[in-house]
Design a binder for these strands. Structure first.
Lengths: 211, 211
DNA sequence: CGGCTTCCAATACAGCCGTATAGCATGTTG
DNA sequence: CAACATGCTATACGGCTGTATTGGAAGCCG
């Protein structure tokens, strides 16, 4: 035993394949509308194997939750804490790997996943602390942080409509650039954090010049 | 014949009751997860009656779509075009009647309703025209309008999380006030339209003083 | 009053869903 | 080599879902 998960984490084991396919289908159609048989079919395995690896549909869903949460925490750490936002190759790497996970997160927020709700609350708390740090007035930081979080995630949740209205895939290179810049244009810089705003702006500009 | 829909439109006929209950359940759980039997149960009628009035689940869903769309168009006309945004009783009236319909709209946007998609596109077009009217530069008005629309609707779609993070119901009097003001704080006024921004701000303030 | 339409409930049914079970290779362990 | 754990498939089953059908009650019209 203990032989599971042979080498790395993003390999092509059947288990990982099932999880990835499930995330994509859950994101597109919702959890309830996605059948285990459809997942198995898309992953090229039998329905029984899905159950073998994850026990039940609900447990499969939780596995998807945990996977996307750990990924996002990782990227946020690398991007913000480790000051990688200015590096175009980092922005490009995220743009390539993140889409399926972001789409799943958007759906999970609406489908009532506890893990997604927890992530939302965490984002609000971090944002509220950021706002309070830059503005010591008695403004309603909690409400501002909540609205800011919901607005940003709203773009993720409504990615399909955003892409259609834009005429370009939100998660394509041009779409991400246009939406990112529009966000920076629309929101008052002091609420993104002046420093973070500047870093994001320059990172986005560099990324735009590269193409 | 021709006796259907006796007097007004918002009466308590079984047909209207079924539609309203369906909208609430669709909004809470999604269309696929909501059964016709559950709708009939909540409306106090037999499952057969649901089919009698709407034919099929899909047609019931379309009826919900049309109902919410006509309502929203009506309120937007009264609020913006007829300059009612400053009147606190108008804001209060909307706050009382809109919630179930807004919740349904939020779900419809994610569940892939064609009608909701059309409304999104329409909102983007109107917003883009507004932006272009106030700014003749070669800025990316289309992207800004799309992002602005998605962010605003994002609050609706994520109302459950917003309410939880706020500690108050988004559609309660205090919640609507706090979120409305936070939105006006966060977004650069010129993108709401300077005049509209001012009107919304004063309307919100009056509404806040009243309580 | 007889006929017709509308509103509604009860029952029936075919299909699909999640899941339990049994079985078969493969390769690892003791 | 024997025993066993693992990755996987095939089949079966109970329950639920959408919907078709049937029939009855109430009200209008001629």
């Amino acid at each position: 035993m203990l032989n599971m998960r042979p080498v790395s984490d993003d390999d092509l084991t059947a288990r990982a394949r099932i999880r990835d396919v499930a995330m994509a289908l859950f994101a597109e159609q919702g959890v309830k509308a996605t059948t285990i048989r459809a997942i198995a079919d898309a992953a090229g395995v039998s329905p029984g194997l899905v159950q073998h690896h994850f026990g039940s549909k609900e447990e499969l869903r939780q596995a998807c939750d945990e996977h996307v949460l750990s990924y996002i925490r990782e990227q946020v750490t690398e991007g913000i804490t480790d000051h990688n936002l200015e590096r175009p190759e980092f922005v490009e790497a995220v743009r390539r790997t993140a889409p399926p996970l972001m789409k799943y997160l958007g759906r999970a927020l609406v489908d009532g996943s506890p893990a997604a709700a927890a992530m939302f609350d965490e984002l609000v708390s971090v944002t509220a602390a950021n706002l309070a740090r830059g503005d010591h007035s008695d403004a309603d930081h909690r409400a501002r942080a909540t609205v800011l979080t919901a607005m940003k995630l709203g773009i993720t949740v409504l990615h399909e409509h955003v892409s259609r209205a834009l005429g370009t895939d939100l998660y394509g290179p041009q779409g991400a650039l246009r939406v990112g810049q529009a966000q920076l244009d629309l929101i008052r810089p002091e609420f993104v954090g002046l420093e973070l705003h500047e870093r994001a702006r320059t990172g986005l500009d560099k990324f735009g010049e590269q193409r």
